[in-house]
Amino acid sequence: MQSNNTLEIMQRFNRAFQDHDPTLLDELIAEDCVMESIQPAPNGTRYEGREACLAFWQALAAERVSHFDLEDITAMGDSAVIRWRFNFGDGGSVRGVNLMRVRDGLIVEALGYAKSPGQTAPLPE
């Protein structure tokens, strides 16, 4: 698959969240899709199959109080990296990335990772 096709799929995927239109996701998700969300920390939740992934994303896209700011999309072959900031309704936010993979024009994998506020690792001396 060409990177420009992967990029187009990622742009369509993100448009669903930007426009709060869950119907835009209907034709983008493969039957064998696997998705890992960022919550609960530290490992998130794993969703397997089109229906489970689609239900999660459609609920998130329909949410009108919170929203995503898309920071960047990079596509390489059948893979893509999406950098984003999720803004909570209360004014807080979290930054993260999704590692995405497509096959035959459909999303087959989406692994979400986010920065964890308040957790710091000790610096080496």
Rank of each mutant, 00 (worst) to 15 (best):
A30Q: 04
A30F: 12
A30D: 15
E31L: 14
E31H: 04
E31T: 14
D32C: 13
D32N: 13
D32V: 12
C33I: 09
V34Y: 00
V34H: 02
V34N: 03
V34G: 01
M35N: 01
M35F: 08
M35Q: 06
E36Y: 06
E36C: 08
E36W: 03
E36I: 15
E36N: 09
S37H: 00
S37V: 14
S37M: 03
S37N: 03
Q39H: 08
Q39R: 07
Q39A: 12
P40Y: 01
P40E: 01
P40K: 02
A41N: 00
A41Q: 01
A41W: 07
A41Y: 06
P42A: 05
P42W: 05
P42H: 01
P42I: 11
N43S: 11
N43T: 13
N43E: 10
N43H: 09
N43M: 13
G44A: 08
G44M: 04
G44K: 02
G44R: 00
G44L: 11
T45F: 04
T45I: 08
T45A: 07
T45S: 06
T45R: 01
T45N: 00
T45C: 01
T45P: 02
R46V: 15
R46S: 05
R46Y: 08
R46G: 07
R46L: 13
R46D: 02
R46F: 08
Y47K: 04
Y47D: 05
Y47W: 09
Y47E: 00
E48C: 05
E48R: 04
G49E: 10
G49S: 08
R50Q: 15
R50P: 06
R50T: 15
R50M: 14
R50V: 13
E51A: 15
E51I: 12
A52S: 12
A52M: 05
C53Q: 04
C53A: 15
C53S: 10
C53P: 01
L54Q: 01
L54M: 05
L54I: 13
L54P: 00
A55V: 10
A55R: 05
A55I: 09
F56D: 06
F56L: 13
F56S: 03
F56G: 02
F56M: 12
F56E: 02
W57V: 10
W57P: 02
W57D: 01
W57H: 06
W57S: 02
W57I: 11
Q58W: 10
A59W: 01
A59C: 08
A59Y: 05
A59G: 15
A59V: 11
L60V: 15
L60Q: 07
L60E: 10
A61F: 08
A61N: 03
A61P: 08
A61L: 11
A62F: 09
A62T: 10
A62M: 10
A62R: 03
A62W: 06
E63A: 14
E63Q: 15
E63S: 15
E63G: 12
E63R: 14
R64P: 03
V65Q: 13
V65R: 09
V65F: 05
S66V: 09
S66A: 15
H67I: 12
H67M: 13
H67E: 04
H67L: 11
F68A: 10
F68E: 02
F68R: 00
F68N: 06
D69E: 15
D69N: 05
L70H: 04
L70G: 04
L70I: 14
L70C: 03
E71S: 10
